[in-house]
Computed example of a mutant assay.
Amino acid sequence: MDTASRPHEQACTQSSRDKTQEKRLGSERSHGADGQDVLGKTSLVLKMKKLFFAFLALSAFSIGQPYADEAAPKFNDFPATDLFNGKPSKVRIISSRDRKFATRLHALSGQRPNFAGHYTLASWGCGASCIQTVAIDAKTGKVAWLPFTVCCWDSDISEPIEFKRDSSLIIVHGSRNEAGAGVYYYRLDRAGFTLVKAVEKVAS
């Protein structure tokens, strides 16, 4: 072989080795980047699983509580400032429901106010473990019916309807019109009984 051609062959051989090494390094870098992507995705999946199980644990704790009664309305949140001490007005019998229970309403209207400053509130039975409730304005004789019957309250509840003279809030325990179950907060205003908050009972 011509000695003059040896440097050229050596140069070609070295160039071929360099290209092979570059390909190998490039492949290693590519695999390294893919490995980092896989690790990153695996870490994200693990974090999502931890959040999911934490959410399940929190949900289970919440379901285990019989009532979710955080920030429940209180009587002093709805004060009645107009306390009436005069002679109660004669009840005004207007609606068909008023006429149906006229005798009870007439007897109730002569009593002193016990609710929302100037109302007389009373309940009476409408079946087994069932009551209906009405309030009469001692100043005007106007009748305000609680727009549902109440039944099926828990055995440890002595008063399914809680109320005070110096507050317009009432607290209802049990089922409304035999549907649902829980604790319901209503206030009495000029429009009648208005729902403030409903806390449904969660099955354990």
Rank of each mutant, 00 (worst) to 15 (best):
A135V: 03
K201D: 01
S158R: 10
D137L: 09
Q132S: 12
F75W: 00
T20N: 15
P73T: 06
S95M: 08
Q36R: 14
P88W: 00
E159H: 12
I161P: 00
S89N: 09
S96K: 10
S89C: 01
N177W: 02
K87D: 00
V150R: 07
A54L: 10
F55H: 13
P79C: 05
Q65P: 01
F115N: 06
L46F: 07
E178A: 14
D156F: 04
V172I: 09
D137H: 06
L25E: 14
V134R: 01
S43W: 11
L56F: 12
C126Y: 04
E9K: 14
S62N: 11
Q111N: 10
G110T: 06
C151T: 09
A144T: 08
S15E: 15
V172K: 05
E200K: 15
Q14M: 04
T20A: 15
T103V: 03
L188S: 03
S168W: 07
K142P: 07
V91W: 03
S204Q: 13
E200Y: 13
R190H: 12
D154G: 00
K100V: 10
L195M: 05
S62R: 14
R190T: 13
L195E: 12
F193W: 08
T140R: 00
L44N: 14
M48P: 03
V45K: 14
S43F: 11
I161S: 05
F53V: 15
S95Q: 02
K142S: 13
S15K: 12
K49W: 14
T133N: 01
Y67F: 15
R104G: 09
